[in-house]
C-alpha cells in the first residue's frame, strides 16, 4: 500500500473517475478516440452481460422484500386463497391494526427504543476516550484492547451467555432492560472502537499539540479540540450501535423473561405459534414496521458505509 497512488473513495457515483476508454498510456492506440469495430462489439456484449447479471442480483436481493410488503398488505381472505399474487387485490392496512391487537407491539417497540438509545449513548461515551488512547498511544493496554477487538469477533455467544446469565443474576440485572443495555454496550464496543480509532487517526496530531502548547490539559484537548472534529464519526458510531441493539435477538431472548420487558425481535417471534403456524398478515405487517427504523438509520449511514467507514478502515 503505497502512499503515492491516489486513493479514491468507495462512494463513486458521480466522482471524477476518468471515463473507461480514456487510457493513461497513449501507446498502441490505433484509431484515436475509437476502438476498432470488433472490439467494440465484444465490449457491447460484455456490457449486456453485466446488466443481465446486475438485474439478477437486484431480483435476488429485492424479491423477498417485495413479498414481505405484499403479504403485509393482503386481506386475510386473500391470504387464504390458493394462488397468492404479487400485487394485493385490495391493499388494506387491517393487518397493522390486527398485529397491534395480537401482541404488545407498542410496548415492545418502546423497550427496544430505550435499550437502543441507551446502548448508543453509553457506547459512544465510553468508546470515544478509549479509541482515542488506542489510536494515539502505543501502550501495552492499547495493544491488548486491539487484540480484544479482534478476538471478541470470534466469541461464541453460547460460551459467554451462560456466565453472563449468572453474573447478571448476581447483580440482580436479569430480566431488566438496564442489564440488557449493559450487555449490548459491551457487545457494540468492538465495532465502535474499530470505527472510532479510524476517525481519531484522521484528526491531525498537530492540532492537539497546538492546544497543548497553548496550555490546554489532556481532557480539555479531548473535549474542545478532538471531539468536535470527531463529530460525524461519533454520530455514525452511535447510529450503528443503535441498530445493533435494535436488531439483536439472542441476548434478549435469554436475558428477558417478563412479557412486559421484552424487546421487539423477541415479541415478533411470538407471532409464530408453537407448531410454526402463523397469522401471516399481521406477522408480515409487524415485521415490516420493525424494520423501518433500522433501514432508515442505514439510509442515513449509506454514504458512510460504502464510503467513509471503510475508506477510513482501509486507508493506510
Amino acid at each position: 500500500m503505497t502512499a503515492t497512488r491516489p486513493r479514491r473513495s468507495v462512494r463513486l457515483p458521480r466522482s471524477g473517475r476518468p471515463a473507461p476508454r480514456q487510457r493513461s498510456t497513449p501507446r498502441k492506440r490505433l484509431a484515436p478516440g475509437r476502438p476498432p469495430a470488433p472490439r467494440r462489439r465484444t465490449r457491447r456484449a460484455a456490457r449486456a452481460g453485466q446488466y443481465a447479471a446486475l438485474l439478477g442480483y437486484l431480483l435476488f436481493l429485492g424479491f423477498p422484500l417485495l413479498w414481505l410488503l405484499s403479504t403485509a398488505l393482503k386481506s386475510p381472505r386473500e391470504l387464504g386463497s390458493l394462488h397468492p399474487a404479487w400485487i394485493p387485490r385490495d391493499p388494506t392496512p387491517a393487518n397493522v391494526r390486527q398485529a397491534f391487537a395480537e401482541q404488545p407491539l407498542a410496548h415492545a417497540a418502546l423497550n427496544s427504543l430505550l435499550v437502543a438509545l441507551g446502548t448508543a449513548v453509553v457506547a459512544v461515551l465510553i468508546a470515544t476516550p478509549m479509541a482515542y488512547v488506542m489510536a494515539r498511544h502505543r501502550t501495552r493496554l492499547a495493544r491488548a484492547a486491539t487484540g480484544w477487538v479482534v478476538v471478541s469477533q470470534a466469541f461464541p455467544f453460547v460460551l459467554v451467555i451462560i456466565p453472563l446469565f449468572l453474573v447478571l443474576k448476581n447483580l440482580r440485572l436479569i430480566d431488566s432492560l438496564l442489564g440488557l443495555t449493559l450487555v449490548y454496550v459491551v457487545w457494540a464496543l468492538p465495532f465502535a472502537l474499530w470505527m472510532l480509532v479510524g476517525h481519531v487517526r484522521a484528526v491531525p496530531v498537530e492540532l492537539e499539540e497546538a492546544a497543548a502548547v497553548d496550555g490546554a490539559g489532556r481532557l480539555r484537548t479531548l473535549v474542545s479540540v478532538t471531539a468536535p472534529l470527531l463529530g460525524p464519526g461519533i454520530a455514525a458510531t452511535a447510529l450503528f450501535a443503535f441498530v445493533t441493539a435494535w436488531n439483536e435477538f439472542f441476548f434478549a431472548l435469554v436475558l428477558l423473561k417478563s412479557p412486559g420487558r421484552q424487546t421487539l425481535p423477541v415479541v415478533l417471534t411470538h407471532f409464530i405459534g408453537a407448531e410454526g403456524v402463523a397469522d401471516l398478515g399481521p406477522l408480515a405487517a409487524a415485521a415490516f414496521l420493525a424494520t423501518l427504523p433500522s433501514v432508515a438509520v442505514f439510509g442515513i449511514l449509506q454514504r458512510r458505509i460504502t464510503g467513509g467507514l471503510l475508506a477510513g478502515a482501509v486507508k493506510s
Binding site: L58, F63, P64, F249, L268, V297, F298
Partner: peptide, 30 residues
Amino acid sequence: DLRLRGLARALAIVPWAMPEVVVGIMWRLV
C-alpha cells in the same frame, strides 16, 4: 459504470440493516 448502480447499492445494504428475526420471518413467508 453501470446504470442502476445506485439502486443496487441501496438494495445491497438493506439485508444488513434488517433485524435477523425479520429476515427469518420474511423468508418464512417466501
